[in-house]
Design a protein around this nucleic acid. Structure first.
Length: 667
DNA sequence: GACTAACGTTTTTTT
DNA sequence: AACGTTAGTC
């Protein structure tokens, strides 16, 4: 039994996509057209055609997408086949490659991976060290320029601005000295090794003969180059995406990859999935009428398989307070009148700060809601600290994590000492850890600090030893270490509230628990660290476990769907965002709105306000220019006053009193 | 080296 | 308004 799927359950275009196994294939999959199903069926079809599972590689952008795809495939094929194929992100694929061959570029195989906050920390140091600039330059600005250069295939020294070029060179040298790489380097170095080493390239091309890339509209040019190295003749490569849903241009996504695919792989078979199973005709027609205004797209017209539907409402609001209250009331009324679940409702907004008033309105009415969190779990301080300790237990010579926790908690090794140690290590071409271990260095330090260094070295070395001798479970060693150094009490002293204290403690516990689970599967500490470094997972439960209406940014909503959608703040300057108008990327804003609209299954409401609180200041607003681009056929343009002024229906009345009651209960 | 006060900034977010 | 960063003080 190889696989279970049936051609009969697919439409003509999907069938064509599933059948097209050989040569370059591009599947243009509009929103809600059954993309994932098509891709998983296509892979199942490969197995049916006796293509060995081990030769199949599917690349995604996020870990979430990778695990979802793995899950879907696992449901269709044998366990063996599912575990034999490779489904992973671009970055984790590159880590695998580099752990086995980065020494070709002069790095050691136990390199560490810099997170964004590591990068910022490093750049901040460099800015101080280099000085020289009259203007204040933000670390993020420089890092963005460096990232852009790497993605374009430029050497750091080739940056236009001399000051930036100097910083970029220093940054790259510093990383190399610390045997560390950043996220871009993972792709950059993997591509370089594949390009320059024919044996490695042939090995990978032989190993992965069937490559699928999901969300292709999000690839940047470096990823494109990597893909070209990865895929050899006869180019059995399949890319899947939708240029109309390309909303990550600001972080390097290159729509040209999808628009000019035939320039990268010759004579691709191009298949369009245009039958939409998600939305009503009203929603879809409105979405189509908007996206038509973009130039230079792969033209697609989504066809609704569902008939009719409520008209799309556009509601003019006096202000953002009324907007939030209106939506909360509508959710309350909709739930009781139409027998909906809280989970059926979603409110979409452009910027995170727009969620405040919405949250408040939800809380007042006791509507359960889930916010798709802005702060990533792995960016939380306690998590990064504990992971840094874990990293030292694998390789204390990793400077980045060492410097991170050298004085966390405070142990009397402050910044001054850190600078001296870094300086010494640089002068002697050694790691900071080696400096701390070397009497030649420590004897130059005051006795008080020296003793602090000695006990720190003993602490780490002792714990590392226990792991190396495999006497204890790494999770236990780490747990003991964290307790011994009284990390949590130190952290708690800096907390303002009890809930914050609790959250910190939970963060630490979650790392330990997840390491323990990892170790149970017999996997090494290093692989745990790689996974952690490459996953910016928000607190996982987010959508799956948490109950309630969804509050979410337009960006984060891509790939999701909801029966009832409210899309707020359709105001010029917000959507399109003023910054995008200045940058000349209004097309991308239009795509963003398009993504938002196509999230709706049954019912869609768009709102805009006459005034809005912005940075603590009341500001007047104009309706978004996008509103005028929507075709009127299925639109119902109305206003807050008009809706409130109308005779309330029996349903609305009963829910009004219901609300009143729940508000009273809340007091 | 730790703590506090003033200051400036504020799109989107993944690896 | 609210947050993080920085400069200044003890």
């Amino acid at each position: 039994m190889a696989s279970t799927f049936s051609f009969n359950s697919l439409n003509a275009a999907q069938r064509q996509a599933v059948a097209a196994l050989d040569g370059p294939v591009m599947i243009l999959a509009g929103a809600g057209t059954g993309k994932t199903r098509t891709v998983t069926c296509r892979i199942a079809h490969m197995l049916e055609k006796k293509i060995p599972a081990a030769e199949i590689l599917a690349v995604t952008f996020t870990n979430k997408a990778a695990s979802e795809m793995r899950e879907r495939i696992t449901g269709m094929v044998t366990k063996k086949a599912a575990s034999d194929m490779t489904v992973c992100t671009f970055h984790s694929l590159c880590v695998r490659l580099l752990r086995g061959g980065i020494d070709k570029l002069g790095y050691k195989r136990n390199f560490s991976i810099c997170s964004h906050s590591d990068q910022v920390g490093l750049m901040r140091q460099l800015l101080v060290r280099m000085g020289g600039s009259d203007e204040k330059v933000k670390p993020d600005t420089v890092l963005a320029a460096i990232s852009k250069a790497k993605n374009m295939g430029l050497d750091p020294s080739e940056l236009e601005d001399d000051y930036f070029a100097n910083l970029a060179v220093a940054y790259q040298n510093e990383l190399r000295a610390q045997n560390a790489v950043d996220f871009d380097d993972l792709l950059l170095f993997a591509e370089k090794i594949l390009r320059e080493h024919g044996d490695v390239r042939e090995h990978f091309r032989g190993r992965y003969q069937r490559v699928t890339v999901d969300e292709f509209q999000d690839t940047n040019s470096l990823q494109m180059r990597l893909l070209q190295q990865l895929v050899g003749k006869p180019y059995h490569v399949c890319v899947v995406g939708d240029d109309d849903q390309s909303i990550y241009g600001w972080r390097g996504a290159e729509v040209a990859n999808i628009l000019e695919f035939e320039n990268f792989f010759p004579h691709p078979e191009i298949i369009r999935l245009e039958e939409n199973y998600r939305s009503t005709r009203a929603v879809l027609h409105t979405a189509n009428s908007l996206i038509r205004h973009n130039r230079g797209r792969r033209e697609k017209i989504l066809r609704a398989t569902r008939v009719g539907g409520d008209p799309v409402r556009i509601v003019a609001m006096p202000g953002d307070d009324e907007e939030a209250e209106f939506i909360a009331e509508e959710i309350l009324a909709g739930k009781s009148a139409a027998g909906r679940q809280w989970e059926d409702f979603a409110v979409l907004f452009r910027t995170n700060n727009q969620s405040r008033k919405l949250e408040l309105a939800m809380r007042e009415r006791k509507i359960p809601y889930r916010m798709v969190g802005a702060q990533s779990f792995y960016d939380r301080r306690e998590v990064r600290d504990v992971l840094a300790y874990a990293q030292l237990l694998v390789s204390p010579e990793a400077d980045v994590p060492l410097l991170r926790i050298l004085n966390a908690p405070n142990r009397g090794i402050g910044q001054a000492t850190a600078v001296l140690a870094t300086q010494w290590s640089r002068d002697h071409h050694q790691s900071v850890w080696q400096a701390l271990c070397d009497p030649a260095f420590t004897l130059s330090i005051g006795s008080k600090t020296r003793h602090a260094i000695e006990s720190f070295v003993a602490l780490i070395a002792g714990a590392k030893n226990r792991i190396d001798l495999a006497k204890d479970n790494p999770a236990d060693v780490l747990h003991t270490l964290i307790r011994e150094i009284e990390y949590l009490p130190w952290l708690e002293r800096g907390c303002k509230s009890d809930s914050e204290r609790q959250q910190r403690a939970e963060g630490i516990q979650m790392v330990i628990d997840s390491l323990r689970a990892h170790a149970m599967q017999g996997r090494k500490l290093q692989s745990f660290l790689d996974d952690s470094a490459l996953s910016a997972d928000r607190e996982d439960e987010d959508l799956e476990t948490k109950q309630g209406a969804t509050l979410i940014t337009l960006h984060a909503s891509k790939g999701l769907e909801f029966p009832i959608v409210f899309l707020v703040g359709l105001e010029e300057g917000f959507l399109p965002h003023s910054r995008s108008i200045a940058d000349g990327t209004k097309d991308e804003e239009r795509r963003l709105l398009y993504v938002g609209i196509t999230r709706a299954r049954d019912n869609l409401t768009l709102t805009y306000c006459a005034k809005r609180l912005k940075w603590g200041q009341e500001t007047g607003c104009q309706p978004s220019s996008f509103i005028g681009e929507l075709d009127a056929e299925f639109l119902d343009h109305t206003s807050y006053e008009e809706i409130l002024g109308a005779e309330p229906s029996a349903d609305e009345l009963s829910s009004f009193f219901g609300n009143l009651k729940s508000m009273m209960d809340g007091i």
